[in-house]
């Protein structure tokens, strides 16, 4: 499930929240929707907690600073991002993904404060901190 982070993990942004859209992330199931293993034995991988932070314009489009997700431990990073996008407003989805459901080349993805190459497969460990943002250009 996607849930908003508990108060102690959320940024205190009272100034900003007054001018922003209400939180637009709605809960979605992120549990495994994969096919059963070939031998038919029901196997469910364990869940990990992923903290997703939004920065700059992505935060504005998300309507909140961060969300927490419980996902299968082997869920690919890009799938997590797609699910975040699909759970938000059209504007957030459009900032994260293009019309073919691919992650936009302008999206910056940081995993534990290190830039992730979009084409590199990557899985998330429990407690992973994911930051989704874009370059800014104000001068």
């Amino acid at each position: 499930m996607i849930e908003k982070m508990p108060p102690q993990r959320q940024c205190k942004r009272s100034l900003r929240s007054a001018t922003m859209e209400p939180s637009c992330i709605r809960p979605v199931a992120v549990e495994s929707d994969r096919m059963s293993p070939p031998n038919g034995i029901s196997q469910r991988s364990s869940q990990v907690k992923v903290y997703v932070h939004f920065d700059s314009q992505v935060r504005r489009l998300a309507g909140c600073s961060n969300v927490t997700l419980d996902v299968d431990e082997d869920t690919p990073l890009l799938e997590v991002i797609q699910r975040v996008g699909n759970s938000g407003t059209g504007a957030l989805r459009s900032a994260l993904m293009d019309e073919h459901d691919s992650v936009r080349p302008s999206l910056l993805i940081f995993l534990n404060n290190e830039l992730v190459a979009k084409e590199k497969p990557c899985v998330l460990q429990d407690g992973a901190e994911l930051t989704l943002t874009t370059l800014i250009s104000g001068g």
Partner: peptide, 29 residues
């Protein structure tokens, strides 16, 4: 942007250039 700032120093051939980070402008800018 708003209350935020970002900064890096590009040394060509050593560190990522701007296009390494984002080859195109963000759609929302």
């Amino acid at each position: 942007y708003e209350y935020e700032g970002s900064l890096t120093t590009i040394l060509p051939g050593v560190s990522p250039c701007l296009a390494c980070l984002s080859p195109v402008a963000p759609t929302a800018w």
